[in-house]
Design a binder for these strands. Structure first.
Lengths: 202, 202, 202, 202
DNA sequence: CATGAATGAGCTTTCATTCAT
DNA sequence: CATGAATGAAAGCTCATTCAT
């Protein structure tokens, strides 16, 4: 009379999701097939459907877990930074340490969200949370005189994150560029953007 | 045995490509089917293969023509701008006037290039040209004291374009944001980034 | 090593069969799945195979028990009727009181028997028994002058039952028809068919 | 610039439908597979979908054409019969000459209609037409004194056709019965049912 | 006795591509 | 130049059945 072990079930789900992630990075959402994912996850085709209702559900779970993961590391970064310099330093660390596959997945997600309304909704939901966190950080830093108080926090937050999004494309468009240098230049962009007018430039 | 009229042939090719473009925006490269493209282009499936060897060739041509088109409008913009203010003004115009479908296509191209080496090569080739043009513009403006001379022109060019890339994602992540406001803020980012240290902020 | 309690075993079997019956009425033999039956019977898929060797065996058992059940109620009806009028009265009762789902199941069984030789055999075995019983009733009634003696009892029995079969299709072909009226008309058919020549019509 | 030849297209459709019919008789609607039908029709799996949107559409077309065919032969029969005796004679001919596969298909259709609302609708639509024709015939014969005038024509028509339906099951339930004898007995049933009270029995 | 994880064959359907006309 | 009939591989998904626990 053994009942379903929800822990094991969730574990397997995560394993499948991880396998799917590898496929998605390699071939994209549409380009990956259920068989490929099953081979990667070392399960049979039929068995996958005990864990996900269909392919769309796998993509959806990928969106959720991917965005949550990115969000978590972003939040941690901001919580630990109590000043603009720290933010930038963390940005540096995040950029250089991040799994390059994650970049690919984010771009893939943006592309998918452009034509799949269900996924667009998921992306927007998570994006709103990011924006809120960053806007809060900006407001805080503004009150301490660390960020230009004339910048509208919410708008500045979206622009800041769009710059991060844009930085993802560098590795595709110009892989020969030294990542360290480009991160350095990005830090310049951000600090000049956010610094209060009186401060001298870094 | 009448020979093919090369002009008409090329015209038809462009018509098919335009039709394919509409499909790609709607459903992506992988999601679009040859039949859809044929319906959109009002030709038969078999006939399409007189103009393109296969689907990959259509995608390839799309990359080439799409990037060339973007490059052309960018080049025109830079050639007509003899100052940073003009650049920013043009950036404004470009952003607000651009067909929103083009955004989708660019993101789609970036995603495709992440996993299709052939397309990555096309993207990089065109990107390099862009970078060169922008770097030239920067160098020029620096010599006239309009852009901070301490910025490495080549690197600054890539970062500038990555910011433009990033701005594409705004309409997916936060469609509720007023496009005018975000363009305004982006102009702030760019001008603060590029302005010589002594200049007052716009 | 406790032995299986045969009574409990048989009970469970009947429960599963009842659940399967509900599925079969809803979706047919081919359209019903083992999972559906398991959900309906509130047991696990694996457990079902302790009671039935495979799906075919469930269908087979359904045939047996379904036909036996119909046969039983038919036999009771005939045994209690000691005259043609009683037969017809009972026929009336049976038609109006019968679970409409049973109709569906009978038609399903006839269809299945058309292409599944094993099931055809089961159907024929039971049919023969019915025919025998009805033919016996006819012979009896003929000896009492209640049924036209010129009718061959065996043949008349098959025809009588084929009329009952046919009446099942009414609810599919013309559900708008009043069941009471059609039963009345069917009684007319049967009584005119069986009545001895001299008798006046009902 | 050859356009679609609608005649050839329709021909092919009919060929596929005929092939499907053979499969349906052998294995039923649910039991037949697209591959089987394609083998039987000697076309590839993909090609079938140029002629039918999906399997349901094939079944639907089968219903339509099957019922139309039956309806046509029924109508012809009634139109040519200007008396009850002729009706019965024709009934005889129809029963003995009919392709036995048609029986199977009718029972299959009745079973399918029991659980597929779309097909039920098709069946009812055609049934109504049959009923109307037969009821008209009855009314006509009643006015000429050939059919008992006390019978409600519409109801009698449905019952008459339900008897025909029921006769289909004979070959499944009791294949050993001589078809000639059973048809003879059915004719007795019908004539006794319909004959005016004063007429002597056949 | 009972579970549900796991399999794998096979289902319907799609789609890039070829080819006779 | 142009058509659409035809192919066949492969996609996503289902389901009867087995088996370790």
């Amino acid at each position: 009379m053994r009942k379903v072990d929800p822990v094991k079930h969730e574990e397997k789900r995560q394993q499948i999701l991880a396998a799917a992630g590898r496929c998605f990075v390699r071939d994209g959402f549409r380009g990956s097939t259920i068989s490929q994912i099953c081979v990667e996850a070392k399960i049979s085709a039929g068995h996958l459907y005990h864990y996900f209702a269909n392919k769309e559900a796998i993509v959806g779970a990928m969106f959720e877990s991917g965005l949550e993961h990115i969000g978590k590391s972003f939040t941690e970064m901001l919580e630990s930074s109590n000043a603009l310099d720290a933010l930038i330093a963390e940005f540096d660390r995040a950029e250089t340490k991040r799994d390059p596959a994650e970049n690919t997945l984010i771009i893939e997600m943006l592309a998918e969200a452009c034509r799949n309304p269900a996924m667009a909704e998921v992306l927007r939901r998570h994006s709103k949370i990011f924006y809120g966190i960053v806007a809060g950080f900006i407001r805080n830093a503004q009150s301490r005189g660390q960020i230009d108080p004339s910048l509208a926090p919410d708008l500045a937050a979206t622009i800041l994150l769009s710059i991060v999004d844009g930085s993802q494309t560098l590795s595709v468009r110009a892989p020969e560029i030294d990542r360290g240098q480009s991160v350095e230049m990005l830090k310049t962009v951000i600090s000049r953007f956010l610094n209060p007018p009186s401060e001298s430039r870094s």
